[in-house]
Computed example of a mutant assay.
Amino acid sequence: MVKIIAIHGSPRREGNSSTLLKQAVAGARQGGAHVEEVVLRDYTISPCMEIYACIKNGQCAIRDDFPEILEKLEASEGIMLASPIFFYSVSAHTKIFMDRCQSLWVRKYWIEKQELGKAHNTRKGLFISVGATGGKKLFDGALLTVKYFFDVLSASLWKTVLCRGVDRKGEVNGRADVLQEAFAAGRELAKALQIEDGYK
């Protein structure tokens, strides 16, 4: 059975992005995947302190809850990440976690000396996001950030579910189209991983 990690990056426990992520999780489970959910606000994760102790072995020197989530990430074939938009990027909880993955960047590109942009992606990533406005470029900053975050995890940005014009808690429940899109994306991710990995 393929394994997927679903990361909730919202500061709200029952936020709109988390509601969509739960739909994707339900779809992936229906599609036959094992999905483990991680709510970042429940963990103690320090920002990257740029100590660069990671240049020795690719491991972060800060002792907190980050390695626990990293272990789950590295054991997964698929990644679901959900975050609302803050100032045209991801939430602080999400960005802090991403920045701690700098140790993985060091491991991949400094220690292992892989060529930038030429590494083979072994994972697939789904990004789910919600923003309050209807701006054309609302998700541009977050998408660029997520693309390169997924890269250090050897994952491609396989699919996105992006919802504009939603802000207040629970508003996304009135968007049946997006809820259905998220569910379908989760199910498709499970199936795509199964095909790629030879599961039946």
Rank of each mutant, 00 (worst) to 15 (best):
A24K: 05
K169I: 07
I7M: 11
W110K: 14
T145S: 15
G198M: 06
R13Q: 13
N16A: 07
L157E: 13
I195C: 02
R123K: 15
G134L: 03
G174Q: 10
W110A: 11
R123L: 05
I62D: 00
K56E: 08
A142Y: 04
E112P: 06
E112H: 14
E171C: 04
S103K: 01
R63V: 13
V172S: 11
K95I: 09
T145V: 14
A142I: 05
L138T: 07
N16V: 11
S154I: 01
N121A: 14
V178M: 12
K22Q: 14
T19M: 12
K3T: 09
I79A: 01
C60K: 04
E74F: 03
T94N: 08
K22H: 13
G165M: 03
L81Q: 03
L126Q: 10
R107P: 00
D140N: 12
L126V: 09
D42I: 07
E36F: 00
M49T: 13
K136S: 08
V39R: 05
F139S: 03
G27Y: 04
T122A: 09
S17Q: 07
A82H: 10
T145N: 13
G31K: 12
K191R: 14
R29N: 09
K169V: 05
V146G: 10
A185F: 02
T94Y: 03
R12F: 00
A6S: 10
L162P: 10
T19C: 08
F150W: 00
D167T: 02
L157D: 03
D99A: 10
A119C: 05
T133R: 11
G58I: 03
A155T: 03
A82N: 05
R13I: 11
M80D: 07
F127V: 15
Q59Y: 00
M1T: 13
E115T: 15
R100V: 04
L179N: 10
A182Y: 07
Q114D: 08
A92S: 15
R12K: 12
T122I: 12
E68P: 01
D151E: 14
F86Q: 10
L189H: 08
Y109P: 12
A182K: 04
